[in-house]
Design a protein around this nucleic acid. Sequence first.
DNA 1: GGACATATTTTTGTCAACAATAGTGACTGG
DNA 2: CCAGTCACTATTGTTGACAAAAATATGTCC
Lengths: 226, 226
Amino acid sequence: MSEAAIQTYTRADEAFDCLQTAIVKGDLVPGEKIGEVELCSRFNLTRGPLREALGRLESRGLLVRRPHAGVKVVSVSAEELLELYRIRETMEGLAARQAAERMTDHEIADLQATLDTHEKMIEQAQGQAYYQAEGDYDFHHRIATGSRNAKLAQMLLGDLYYMVRMYRYRLSTSSGRPHLALGEHRRIAEAIAQRDGELAEFLMKRHINAARRNIEQKIQEGVLTI
Amino acid sequence: MSEAAIQTYTRADEAFDCLQTAIVKGDLVPGEKIGEVELCSRFNLTRGPLREALGRLESRGLLVRRPHAGVKVVSVSAEELLELYRIRETMEGLAARQAAERMTDHEIADLQATLDTHEKMIEQAQGQAYYQAEGDYDFHHRIATGSRNAKLAQMLLGDLYYMVRMYRYRLSTSSGRPHLALGEHRRIAEAIAQRDGELAEFLMKRHINAARRNIEQKIQEGVLTI
DNA sequence: GGACATATTTTTGTCAACAATAGTGACTGG
DNA sequence: CCAGTCACTATTGTTGACAAAAATATGTCC
C-alpha cells in the first residue's frame, strides 16, 4: 500500500517539493528573478510539471509571478513577518483549544513524550538552536493536526509554517530561547492533557506572542536584518 | 496602465477564474469526477493551462486530485463547514481589530456608506437574501483588506471565502437574517470608526459566531442538507 | 453461474516544438 | 551628448503529440 502511494508520486509533486524546500532553505534567494529553464536544469525537470508546481507555489504565496516577466521568490519585510506571527497567534490558539478537546489520550501521551526528547536534544546540543527549531516545528505540527480541523491544519502547515521556516533557516539562532520555549510547550501540553481548552488557547497565544516579541526585539537590535 | 494589467491576463488565469466560479456557483458538483478533456471543451481551453489552474485550485483546497485517477470538487461535510466558521471567527476577529487600527478615515467612511447601500438593497428586495449575501461578502471583504495584513487578507479572501460562498450559493437563503446581520455590521463599523480595536474584534467574533449557530440550527432542523 | 485474469480503452502525465510578449540594446535625430 | 524609437533576442505562454497508468470490459476457467 505504501509503495502505491510512492508510486503515484508525479513529477509535478516532485517539482513542488524541490522548489518548496529550496525556497525554505534559502537556496533560492528572495527577490532574485529566476528563469524557468534554469530551474529545469537545476532540478532535472521539464517545463510542463515545473509550471504546474510554480502555479501551486504562487497560490500559496511563496513566490510571485508577473506574466511574461518571470517568477521570483517572495520577499517578506520585517513588518510582514511580524504580521505572520499575529496570524499564528490567533490560529494556533484556536488549534490548541480544539486539540485539548479532541486529541486522543494516546496522542497526548505521544506529545508529552516528544517534549522529553526535545529536552534531551537541547541538553545534548548546547546552544545548537537548530534542533530546537525542528522540535518547535514538531510540537506545533502535532497540535495543528490534533485540532481535527482539516482546513485549519492545512492553512497552518501548508501556508504559514513554510513562510516562517523560511526565516528560521536564515536566522538559525532565531528562537534563541530553547529552555524558555520548552517550558511553555510543557505547560501547553499539560493544559491539553487536562482537557482545559481555554487555558491551552491562552498559553499558546502567549507563547507565540513571546516568540514574536523576541523577533521584534532582535530586529530592533539590528541582530536580525531582513 | 489598467489595459496593460488586463493584457497580461494569461489563459491559465482565465482557466483558474472559470473553474473557481464554476465550483463556487455549483456548476461543478462536489464529489463528481470530472475529466480534463471535458473541462477543456467546456471552457474552451487546452490542457496545459488547465492543468496549471487545477494545481492552483488543488493547493487552495477547492478540489482534490488523485494521480492518474482524475480530479473532483471537494465535498465538505456539515462538520467541516462549521469548522470553517470557527476559523473565520478568530481570523476575522483579528482582521477587525487591525482594521480599526489601520483603516484610513476615507475607507471607514466608505465602509459605512456601503452599509447604507446594503440597507436600501434589503428594503427593496424583500427577502431576496442574495443581495444580503453579496453585501455581507462585500463588508467582510473590505475589513479583510483594511487590516493591512497581506497574508491575512490572502487567507481570508483566497482560501476561506470561496469555500463558504460555495455553500452560500447552494443554500441561497443561507443568511436568513438580513436585518440582524446589518445591525451587527453597523456596530462593527462604528467600533472601527471609533478606533476601538478590542470592541471591533469582540463584535466581529460574535457576529460570525451567530452566523455559525444559525447554520448549525438549520442543519439540525433538516432545512439544510449538506 | 460466478470469479479471476487479461486485454483494451480511456484518461492522465510528460515532453518538445511553436508563438507571442517584454525587456534590452543599438541606432538615429535633435 | 541625450532622448526616443525601432528591431532583436531571450524568456514565457501555448499547443499538440506521445507515453504510461488505471479503470473497465470481456473471456475463460472453476
